[in-house]
């Protein structure tokens, strides 16, 4: 068995051991023996102690003032817990009983294995012109469903704007001024990295959108990528610089016009399909960029919509405005 040296405390290895155990830091600043600095520190300590005392007194007074509604709150919380438990238990029982009635997984006679899937897989490319069957499915066969989803995005963004948008006044000024109060401002490392990353992210997002009918991807995923790129740009450079290419005006115009064009495209499909007419849109050869009818344009509109929504959520939650 090895023994510790008598002067182990002062060796380099003991410092490493202390560092691993979290007792000592190599890198942190250690105050020197400067008397003035020490006096300043002592003053600061006194000040913080006084502030702490004041805080404690205020908290005690607040507690004393608010004893009356506390009883009611306690009762409410107890009742709330009981009711929540009851609701959860009933939901659990209902869902479990429903699950036990479901057909077994993998059974060929399940209702999910019907002729619809066969049609999608066998005739999807021929009828929609899209190599990516999923895109052809969600934008062509089930276009109505996807239109509803895009409207849901629009409505969600509108609701967040109603709740969080600060229109004008002093509040707007203060929230705009303090929106990066805690964050590092003008950090050169983040800015250099963003200079490199943001264009690549934008190009990748555009690629995903434009290749939505040829490869995995599409409007929703590509729009999310572009929105993430804009969020990176904002967090690196601030709202002033992002506002040069994406501000409230661009947001309104882009979002509303994308939704309108999207609805126009799909309405044309619906009208022609419902009346049994031929829609006269050439499908092109599957595999080319310009193929599969209106799917390419619908993907672009959906991508614009999703990118605007992503960025608007971020900006609204951060400073209450675009």
């Amino acid at each position: 068995m090895s023994r510790k040296r008598s002067d182990y405390r002062s060796t380099f290895y003991s410092r490493i051991e202390n560092f691993v155990n979290g007792k000592e830091e190599f890198l942190l600043y250690k105050p020197s023996g400067n008397t003035e600095a020490r006096q300043l520190e002592a003053l600061e300590e006194e000040l913080t102690e006084a502030a702490d005392l004041l805080d404690k007194r205020e908290a005690q007074q607040r507690l004393q003032d608010s004893t009356e509604p506390l009883d009611f709150l306690k009762k409410f919380h107890r009742l709330y817990g009981i009711i929540a438990a009851i609701i959860c238990l009933t939901m659990m029982i209902l869902l479990m009983s429903a699950v036990s009635w479901l057909p077994r997984f993998g059974n060929p006679s399940n209702p999910a294995n019907n002729e619809v899937i066969k049609r999608y897989i066998e005739k999807g490319q021929e009828e929609t012109g899209a190599v990516n069957i999923v895109t052809g499915l969600i934008l062509n066969y089930r276009g109505f469903d996807t239109m509803g989803e895009t409207h849901v995005l629009f409505i969600a963004a509108s609701c967040v704007m109603i709740l969080l948008l600060i229109a004008e006044g002093e509040e707007k000024k203060s929230s705009y001024a303090f929106d990066r109060y805690m964050e590092p401002k003008n950090d050169i490392i983040i800015q250099k990295a963003a200079n490199f990353i943001v264009p690549v992210v934008f190009v990748f997002g555009i690629y995903v959108i434009l290749n939505g009918h040829l490869s995995p991807g599409g409007g929703f995923s590509g729009g999310a990528i572009i929105g993430a790129g804009m969020i990176i740009h904002v967090s690196a450079f601030g709202f002033k610089k992002t506002g040069r290419f994406f501000n409230e005006h661009v947001y309104k115009v882009g979002k509303v016009s994308a939704l309108c064009f999207y609805v126009c495209c799909l309405s044309y499909y619906f009208y022609m399909g419902a009346h049994g007419y031929d829609n006269h849109i050439p499908l092109g050869t599957p595999g080319n960029i310009l193929s599969s009818g209106l799917i390419l344009f619908i993907n672009m509109f959906v991508g614009t919509e999703v990118a605007c929504t992503m960025y608007a959520f971020y900006a609204l939650f951060r400073k209450g405005g675009l």
Partner: peptide, 23 residues
């Protein structure tokens, strides 16, 4: 790096505690 800077700029108490411990 960003998380580190946030920690450095926000959490003064932790830094002070650690330095006190070391002292």
């Amino acid at each position: 790096h960003v998380i580190m800077r946030m920690e450095y700029s926000i959490d003064e108490e932790a830094v002070n505690e650690e330095t006190e411990k070391m002292q």
